[in-house]
Design a protein around this nucleic acid. Structure first.
Length: 217
DNA sequence: ACATTAAGTGATT
DNA sequence: AATCACTTAATGT
């Protein structure tokens, strides 16, 4: 076994080896490759073809919908142990991605080529469950996201967003500007500034320039 | 000290 | 909740 394979096997041991059967792990080690991305990089853009799906080992990815340039909306975040089931379907159908994925935190993932994905679905129960589970979870997050748009006031959306962000960062101290938040929620900076001030006064967050500390978790 | 960028605010729709 | 227009505060050079 070469060193590259050894490394992948070790990385998988952290999280995925508990959910995948041994034979499947062996196959992943065989065909997968490790790749790293830095914060702010675009993992996949809308309209691109996908050839691999990531099994996320560390870091986080922000999944968003984008209309035109500068008009976007964050749907959810992916972190360790997650994969993008949507991208999986994209792979199978050889369709173009309908989402954009931006690296939220420096990310490390094992990429598995599309050809195997299909094959494993029939071959391994654990893989099947993993994909279905992932798909289900993403669907729930999507519904939550829709609920947010349809029923929640902007201040609730903001609070949820900050909570999610704190969770995936494993830190309640967020380094972010009002403008960046506004972009992610597809609203204006002025609105965020005012809502943040409210939340600040309500004791739910503590915010200063470039920083928001989430207090109410 | 000056320029740039982030944040705060009142008025209007 | 969005937009405008403007002010004030923080930060970098």
């Amino acid at each position: 076994m070469n060193t590259q394979e050894k490394i992948i096997r070790e990385k998988l041991a952290d999280y995925f080896s508990t959910i995948f059967e041994k034979k499947l792990i062996d196959e992943i080690v065989e065909v997968g490759f490790l790749d790293k991305f830095r914060q702010g990089e675009t993992l996949v853009d809308i309209g691109e073809n996908m050839t691999h799906i990531p099994l996320i080992l560390s870091g986080a990815v922000k999944i968003l919908r984008q209309e035109r340039e500068g008009d976007e909306l964050v749907l959810y975040f992916l972190e360790k142990g997650d994969t993008c089931a949507i991208s999986f379907i994209n792979c199978i159908n050889r369709k173009k991605s309908i989402f954009k994925g931006v690296i939220e935190n420096d990310m490390e993932a094992i990429f598995v080529p599309v050809d195997q994905i299909d094959e494993w679905l029939a071959k391994y129960k654990t893989w099947r469950y993993f994909i279905i589970d992932s798909y289900h979870f993403r669907l729930i997050e999507m519904v939550e996201s829709i609920d947010g748009l349809a029923f929640m006031k902007m201040n609730e959306r903001l609070l949820k967003y900050l909570g999610d962000k704190a969770k995936i960062n494993h830190d309640v101290n967020l380094e972010i500007t009002h403008q960046q938040i506004a972009d992610d929620l597809n609203t204006s900076r002025v609105v965020i500034t005012r809502l943040l001030k409210q939340l600040h006064n309500d004791g739910k967050v503590y915010s200063t320039r470039n920083k928001v500390k989430v207090l109410d978790i």
